[in-house]
Design a binder for these strands. Structure first.
Length: 220
DNA sequence: ATCCCGAGGG
DNA sequence: CCCTCTGGAT
C-alpha cells in the first residue's frame, strides 16, 4: 500500500472519531507551557498538573524562577520523575531566558533548543502549541506508532527521521492534530509491548499487523 | 513488573 | 551509540 493511502486512512479515522484532540497539560502562557513540557518527560500529564499550580504561583515568570535555586525548585517538583535533573534544567533555562532572550519564550526550534532541558521534542511542542507552527514533536509514542503503521519507512531510525517522514505527507493544518492522534493511539491501543491489535481499528492498513500478526507469528 | 508526550553526558 | 536520571500509577 502506498504511504499516501495509509495517511488518508489514518487521518480519516481520527478526524471522524477524535476531531479536536488537545494537550492535557494545564498552562496559561508560553512560559508555563514550556515549564510544563520540560517536567512532563517520563511522567503523566495528570501528575504534572498536580504540581504546576503551586509552582507557577511561586514562580510566575522566568525572572522569579531565575532568582531561585535548585533546592527550592526541587521542593515543588519532587513528586515528578527526575526531580533533580529537572530542577537544574528549570533554573538553567530561566536564567538563559533572562540573560539572552529578554525573558521571552523563543519562537523557533533552533533557539528553544539552546535552553537547558529543552530538546527537539520539547521545542517542537512549544512552537506547535504556542506559536501555531506545523511542527511535529516526536516522542516515544509518535516514533513507535508511525513506524508500526508504516507511515514512515523502517529506515527512519531516529526521531528526526520520523519527524521528516511525517511532515512530508501531512497537510500542514493537520500536523498538530496528527501528533495528538499518534499519541492517543500509542497510549491506549498501540502500546509498546503486546500492542492490542485485536481492538485496533487501523489493522486494514497497518504494516506491523501485516508483517507480524496477520501471518500468525505473533498472537496478542 | 512496566509504563509515563526525554535530555544530557560519556 | 549507550547510560543515567528517578517518582508514581497500575
Amino acid at each position: 500500500m502506498l504511504k499516501k493511502d495509509r495517511f488518508k486512512l489514518f487521518l480519516d479515522y481520527f478526524t471522524r472519531n477524535f476531531p479536536e484532540p488537545e494537550t492535557e497539560l494545564h498552562y496559561r502562557n508560553p512560559y508555563e507551557l514550556l515549564v510544563a513540557v520540560i517536567l512532563s518527560a517520563q511522567c503523566t500529564d495528570k501528575r504534572i498538573n498536580l504540581v504546576t499550580p503551586l509552582l507557577f504561583e511561586r514562580f510566575p515568570d522566568p525572572q522569579s524562577l531565575a532568582a531561585s535555586n535548585v533546592e527550592e525548585v526541587f521542593t515543588y517538583i519532587k513528586s515528578v520523575s527526575y526531580p533533580n535533573n529537572k530542577s537544574k534544567h528549570l533554573i538553567g533555562m530561566a536564567r538563559m531566558l533572562v540573560e539572552h532572550f529578554n525573558s521571552e519564550i523563543p519562537a523557533t526550534v533552533e533557539e528553544l533548543q539552546k535552553l537547558p532541558g529543552v530538546g527537539r521534542k520539547t521545542a517542537n511542542v512549544v512552537v506547535s502549541v504556542v506559536y501555531n507552527q506545523p511542527a511535529m514533536a516526536v516522542d516515544t509514542h509518535v516514533f513507535r506508532v508511525s513506524r508500526r503503521l508504516g507511515l514512515v519507512p523502517m529506515t527512519a531510525s531516529t526521531p528526526l527521521a520520523v519527524e521528516m517522514g511525517l511532515l512530508k505527507y501531512l497537510p500542514k493544518f493537520l500536523v498538530y492534530k496528527a501528533h495528538h492522534w499518534l499519541i492517543l493511539h500509542g497510549r491506549y491501543i498501540c502500546i509498546a509491548r503486546n500492542p492490542k491489535c485485536p481492538e485496533c481499528p487501523l489493522t486494514s492498513f497497518c504494516k506491523y499487523f501485516e508483517d507480524n500478526v496477520k501471518t500468525g507469528l505473533l498472537q496478542s
